[in-house]
């Protein structure tokens, strides 16, 4: 058994017995890691209070090869993110980004994914209220991109023809990206014009546009894409709550209820 230390962020903590937790961390050097933390729920535990969801810090654990669950030793120098608990929107947005990572990262995760994930959490936590939906979408799309599932935006996913800069195409989540005007004419795919396409590119790069139009429609696009390519048959659990938050924001702003971003 060897002792290993890595930067890590806590994604999940499940109670186990009266005083223990089963933890799931995204680590910088060892990808997703499950660990059993015995006794940390006791008031006297030194590590217990630092084990907050979305906190990052230095994780030390005992490794035994071939085990699914390693043994937790400590979690120190933590940076917590209390700002995420100040709104349901922030918490559910961070949860969606975490869920994408939880569902798709194995032991192979690396520094770009880890840093990108932390940057997304920080952005969602620190965003002004009006920009938060954009940062949530940017965080989720950028994780999808880093994981290698980015949608195709430049050429038609059906005929392979390059889309013209000003072309209004359709987004086919099942096929993995844009259909040109001709291939998109049959079917009820959401319409994506040049501005929405530019916004999608920016979101995938992790930079939300200042004037993101119809975040609800963008979330629907993301949700459909996740359903086909990342989540399998089950819907990600944080999506319904997030959709409700986006809808209520759209209602308040008087935005049209449409699937076209």
């Amino acid at each position: 058994m060897s002792i290993v230390t890595s930067r890590a962020v806590l994604l999940r903590a499940h109670p186990y017995g009266d005083t223990s937790l089963i933890l799931r961390f995204l680590t910088q050097d060892h990808g997703m890691l499950g660990a059993m933390a015995r006794g940390v729920r006791k008031g006297s535990s030194r590590s217990g209070s630092s084990l907050e969801t979305f906190a990052d810090g230095l994780l030390t654990f005992h490794v035994r090869e071939g085990r699914d669950l390693q043994t937790f030793r400590s979690f120190s120098d933590t940076r917590t993110r209390p700002g995420l608990s100040r709104s349901i929107l922030g918490l559910s947005g961070a949860s969606l980004i975490a869920e994408i990572v939880l569902a798709h990262v194995g032991e192979e995760a690396g520094v770009p994914l880890f840093r990108g994930f932390l940057a997304s959490l920080d952005a969602v936590e620190g965003a002004e209220d009006g920009m938060r939906p954009g940062w949530i979408l940017a965080g989720a799309w950028s994780m999808v991109t880093v994981l290698g599932f980015a949608p195709v935006l430049e050429v038609c996913v059906v005929c392979g023809v390059s889309l013209a800069t000003d072309e209004v195409g359709r987004f086919d989540a099942g096929e993995g990206g844009m259909r040109c005007q001709r291939c998109g004419s049959s079917g009820s795919f959401p319409r994506v014009g040049p501005v929405a396409r530019e916004h999608l590119r920016a979101l995938m790069a992790g930079r939300p546009p200042r004037e993101l139009r119809r975040p609800s429609a963008h979330l629907k696009l993301l949700s459909d894409f996740l359903h086909f390519h990342l989540a399998g048959s089950r819907r990600l659990r944080s999506l319904p709550l997030l959709e409700a938050q986006f809808s209520s924001l759209a209602e308040r702003k008087g935005e049209a209820d449409t699937d076209n971003p």
Binding site: R12, I88, L91, S92, S95, L96, A98, E99, R237, S238, P240, L241, L242, A244
Partner: peptide, 10 residues
């Protein structure tokens, strides 16, 4: 308690 990761909302 609220827990989007468990699908628990208000």
């Amino acid at each position: 308690r609220l827990s989007p990761l468990d699908g628990v909302g208000p």
